[in-house]
Design a protein around this nucleic acid. Structure first.
Lengths: 204, 204, 204, 204
DNA sequence: ATTTAAACGAGACGGTACGTCACGTCTTCTG
DNA sequence: CAGAAGACGTGACGTACCGTCTCGTTTAAAT
């Protein structure tokens, strides 16, 4: 199948070196900040040659993307959660999800490389597309499915555009985090969530 | 203010060199992209020495910030518009403002250096603070004043947090632009605006 | 001799690969010059793995040495001529030999790899010793035998040091060639030969 | 004058850095051998940036050439000896000169970088031409003048080609040194000199 | 109307990192 | 099981810019 077609080159890949590189990239970003992250430093820290990095990744940003994927796949049992919670109470469910995200974004080991990746994507369309494909899209579809169910259950007005709804609910949090426009607190996301949902409830 | 602190030294400052540098920075960013913008290239293009740039600006980003200020001050008669339109129809007024912004963000000569500046600010807090002080704050207060008037006129629910409202109305546009998540169209901002305002109208 | 030392391993040696490597080395040296000759390019051109080269030769220079031996053994019937001509006329005989050498040195396919080998030997004593053993020594002894016979026949003064004589006759040609100090012509070697022999004839 | 026309660029040159680079190149060549001489090592040892070397020299070989010129100009009072000795006894004079050269070539600090330069010249025609212009030519003309005077004084046959004579006298020494074909001793050059001169004396 | 001190253009300098090349070794798969 | 294929750690390459530092040379102020 198609995995086999790709195999000839990737088969030879040294998995230990791959993990060492991703781990080193995360550690250096967390330690010294992204500005001081260098291919050479990653290589030294990982105990590999620079060429091994250039062979498999087109840029620092691509390394970070893989590193973050490694983290998220390492969570739990190796599979990604497939659905947002659905207890029937939309606001409570989203609150729980948002609080978890707030907590994650307040964790420097995750937040720092994520911001670095976001920064890099702003200037690298290929990387951004890759990110959307591999990390953002599945998450977004999960969100869309949850909102669709709410819509069918009559908790959201039928005319609401779900993509806009997602932007309204999650966008402010991302902005605050990315642009450091204020502290990331549970009460902030609660306010945003309430305001957003209020605008999308079915009209009587 | 900033200008006053360094006024004694600035007395000798060569205004022609200053403009040449800002113009060169904009031109190079528009031409080759921000990634290829360097102090040396700005200096060569502007026909100045590197030291003249280092003397007056702490970083590339600061040059861009001044360059964008130069553009925005060059508009009209040299003074910034102090207020958003207020015809009494909030949605119509905001629609007009948002359409103007969409048009501006679809102009590469403005959009490219602006995105570059946004990128630079993500990694440079001093620059970000300076930006907020000099460009963002006055604009945000303008928005806040307009929404406050709408609230007093009973077009917005009194309990709405105006900062959250601003985020709801302008945030999605900024996100779409900054992260290139989709085309910037009038209809998109119209949809966002309608959804946002629906959630903030006074309850009967 | 050398072959006997490594015979045990050589039993398995792939002769086709050996010839492909030597031929590739010569071709690449003639084409692109010695400076651009690398083990990797030889391997690619020869269609072998790099390891096959490293297994059998200690250096690029050693490959070239074998390649030149392959050429010289390929001449005629596979055996090397054992003696310089001896018609009784020393000057005429040497002239013939020197003219043949001049012609060979004006042939780029031979001259370029030979110069490369000479260059490599300057910085590699082991290679130089190997070269002297396998290529230079037999040739030099041939020359010495011819001059010895001339001495016995009374065409050279008995007190002449034959090694010095060889240096006087063949040295200038080698220098001119190796250091590109001038064109390699028959008349040049004729002049050198005449001057040298004049100094070595028996005194009356 | 013309020195001033060239001056604009060279005037700014940092003489201390130049000397540090040449000294470092000599020291490293003497210590570790030419094979381990690297632009990066020269820069580190000299305490300069690599670019300072690349700015002023096109290659390692060119650095060595300047380094050797620095040595030879450093001898005595800063001027190069203009003539070989001429006591009227050609053989004695040349013997003295050759013995001095033998002594020099047995000094590793001089001999090692000189051999390295010779090696480099074999593969770099521009460098070789520069070498001939700046080091070899003046020396060769000195030799030619001495032999010419000997010819006029009747110590050399009038029909002798002086360039060939130079090659006969000095060539064997250079060869032995360059190709390490034997020990460099006074008696060797004496033998060569005697043989060569014997062939060039006026015929009765 | 001179002086004089700064800002200026030019660009050399010590550095850091880049992305590439080739080295010589090691590993995997294939004929 | 030798050999092709090529990944790997290593180290040097030559280049691009960094930010600092002289150099003369304007140039505008305070004499």
């Amino acid at each position: 199948m198609n995995a086999q077609r790709r195999a000839p080159r990737a088969a030879r890949r040294n998995e230990a070196a791959r993990r060492a590189i991703l781990t080193a990239a995360l550690a250096l970003t967390a330690q010294d900040g992204y500005a001081r992250l260098t291919i050479e430093r990653i290589a030294v820290k990982a105990g590999t040659g620079k060429q091994t990095i250039y062979r498999w990744w087109p840029s620092k940003g691509a390394v970070l993307l893989d590193a973050l994927l490694m983290i998220s796949e390492g969570d739990g049992d190796g599979t990604r959660p497939a659905e947002l919670p659905d207890t029937g109470d939309l606001e409570a469910d989203l609150k729980a999800v948002l609080h978890a995200t707030v907590s994650e974004l307040n964790t420097p080991e995750i937040s720092k490389p994520m911001r670095a990746l976001a920064l890099e994507m702003l200037g690298d369309d290929v990387l951004a597309a890759d990110y959307r494909q591999r990390l953002e899209r599945p998450v977004k579809e999960m969100k869309r499915r949850r909102l669709r169910r709410a819509q069918l259950a009559g908790h959201l007005a039928p005319e609401v555009d779900l993509d806009v709804a997602i932007e309204m609910i999650w966008g402010p949090l991302r902005n605050r985090w990315l642009h450091r426009e204020g502290p990331l607190t549970s009460s902030y996301v609660d306010t945003v969530l309430k305001t957003a949902l209020d605008g999308m409830r079915p009209r009587p």
